[in-house]
């Protein structure tokens, strides 16, 4: 089975996670890896059974490359928060800041040899067949996704939040107990509530649970615990700025 592992604009952390799985030798034996830029610059985009794509579309070149990957892949898997939701770099979207303004703030009058834009997730451009969430994804899930493809099957995506794993793990709930701004109720599970186990509220790095993240309910819960709108909005937007209706859900609770 042929696979390709690609990276658009991102930190390359997802690819790194895939490169350092403990059983990388078994993976390389099972799959004919046609493209994996992080490991070798020799690869070129050609037909594969499954293409894994990390990163968000943040330049014209990203879009071109993504379309080419899609055309050459039977199955396309978006890996990580950037590819699935646009990632941290799309935070400007929910703040209503345009690309020109953002560029100027960071780089001043400098010129770049690419055309940038506010980051967008893959599904704004191409059909995404499966999502492998994480920032970066967990090794267990990487192996599960690869193994299902290896036997000609497909992965079952989690559609429930971190809370479920947090309760299964027997952690105390720090949102209820301490009023911590935990995004566990709206963040897709898979991390076994790692941060909360150490008393750190979930920041939502794995991204929202697709279609069933109730940011309005959570905003209400935060509001009732004394958190103000600006704070809540900023925190929720870090990894979910592209989630449909995010701002409206927050406005509904706090008022415009």
């Amino acid at each position: 089975m042929k696979i390709g592992i690609h990276g658009l604009t991102s930190c390359y952390g997802c690819q790194l996670s895939m490169a350092v799985v403990k059983r990388i030798l078994d993976v390389s034996e099972k799959f004919d890896i046609k493209y994996f830029y992080m490991l070798s610059s020799a690869g070129k985009i050609e037909h594969v059974d499954v293409a894994f794509v990390e990163g968000s579309v943040s330049t014209d070149e990203d879009e071109k490359e993504l379309r080419m990957i899609r055309e050459n892949a039977d199955v396309l898997v978006a890996i990580g928060s950037c590819a699935i939701h646009g990632g941290v770099q799309s935070i400007l979207f929910s703040e209503g800041i345009g690309y020109e303004e953002a560029f100027k703030t960071v780089y001043g009058d400098k010129k770049m040899d690419y055309n940038g834009r506010i980051a967008q997730p893959l599904d704004k451009f191409v059909k995404v067949d499966y999502r492998l969430p994480g920032c970066p994804p967990e090794e267990e899930e990487i192996m599960y996704y690869l193994a299902t493809f290896a036997i000609g099957s497909w992965p079952e995506e989690k559609d429930y939040p971190v809370c479920a794993e947090c309760r299964r793990a027997g952690n105390p709930c720090i949102l209820i107990e301490k009023g911590e701004p935990c995004l566990g109720p709206v963040t897709v599970a898979g991390c076994d509530a790692r941060c909360i186990k150490y008393g750190i509220p979930c920041i939502g790095c794995r991204g929202p649970v697709s279609d069933v993240s109730w940011f309005d309910s959570l905003a209400m819960s935060f509001r009732d615990r004394g958190m103000d709108k600006e704070y809540v909005k900023k925190r929720m937007a870090i990894f979910a700025s592209r989630y449909e209706g995010l701002n409206e859900m927050i406005d509904k609770i706090y008022g415009d």
Partner: peptide
Amino acid sequence: SEKCLGCGNCTMT
């Protein structure tokens, strides 16, 4: 149900 987070805490506990 509008208030509900769908988080499953009720059923897990």
